[in-house]
Simulated assay, not measured.
Amino acid sequence: MDIRHLEYFLAIVDHGGFNRAASALYVSQPSLSQAVRALERDLGTDLFHRIGRRATLTEAGKALIDPAREAVRSLQTARSSVEAVHELREGRLDVACMPSQAVEPLTTLVCAFSRRHPGVTVAIRAAFTSREVIDMVRTGAVELGLLASAGPVSDKEVASCELGRQRFVLMVPPDSPLAGRAAVGCEELAGQRLIVGQRGTGMRAYVDALREQGIDFTVAVETEHRVALLPLVLGGVGAAVVTESWRDIARQAGVHVMDIEPETTLDIALVNRRGTVSPAAAAFVRIAARTNT
């Protein structure tokens, strides 16, 4: 079985069709189709239902996705191991990260890693929940994942490096009556207009828990795009409950940030699949462990 055929198969899955995959791979569609047919002959089964120009996965095709990712990732690990002889002068490291942790500690970790290994490209993939991060790491879509969770990460699916905790804080516009204070009680969020994240995120779970406690507020905006938080707060749309990873950048933008009492935190962790990882991933984990000490 040709590993290139598996890479082509995954490209079709990830890009949603033969045409897009061929464009992404810079190969002709006939060459891509021929490679997939060769893979199907090797496996003795069809991987796609071909209906006109459309192609949908067969049950066999769906079953191949995870093993194919593992095989491709294993080959990439082998290649990276060879590159380690050259002191990681080149290569690529795929990292999945939740939005708030992409502000910090990911920025600090990538800066430290890039200073030591400037030839290695760090590719950051977005994931909105800790479950998404773990699944991307577990299936081999990425090598490392940075996440926040309400409690330590279970060691059943992935290995983890604990990176401390982040508390929840409140961002308010500079003209807010709350501006200028160092802290605010969670009960004072009653009556506030809040900008919140989508369900399944830590920040959304926190504000939903406040509402269950009888603290009544108005959801002004619900957004998946964390980059919109600062402009929305600055625009006076409402206040936003976020983790303290936002503190420095928010203050630089002119937003006032205060602690929310009583203190509530999320656990931050860097996770990877159990077993051998690439030299780049191992170097990144070592840097994260040193940064946390």
Rank of each mutant, 00 (worst) to 15 (best):
L64R: 06
R274L: 06
A78I: 08
G191A: 08
V133H: 03
T223N: 07
H225V: 07
N292F: 04
H256G: 03
V142Q: 09
E83C: 00
D2E: 15
R286F: 00
D14I: 07
H5K: 12
V242D: 04
R20G: 10
E87C: 04
L194A: 08
R79E: 14
A205Q: 14
G52E: 01
L6V: 06
D267E: 13
G140D: 10
F113M: 12
D175H: 14
V184S: 08
E162S: 13
A190Y: 09
D208V: 13
T121C: 00
E132L: 09
V122R: 03
S31C: 05
D14L: 12
E90W: 03
R251Y: 01
R79V: 07
A141L: 08
S278N: 03
S74E: 08
G16I: 06
D175W: 09
I12W: 13
A126Y: 00
R251V: 10
L39T: 03
Q166G: 00
R199I: 02
F113H: 12
V242T: 10
P118F: 01
V110M: 07
S33D: 04
G197S: 15
A182D: 15
R226A: 12
A269H: 07
M1E: 09
A60Q: 05
F9E: 15
S31Y: 08
D42N: 07
R247I: 09
T121Q: 06
E40S: 02
V257I: 06
L210A: 10
D66N: 10
I195A: 02
V227H: 07
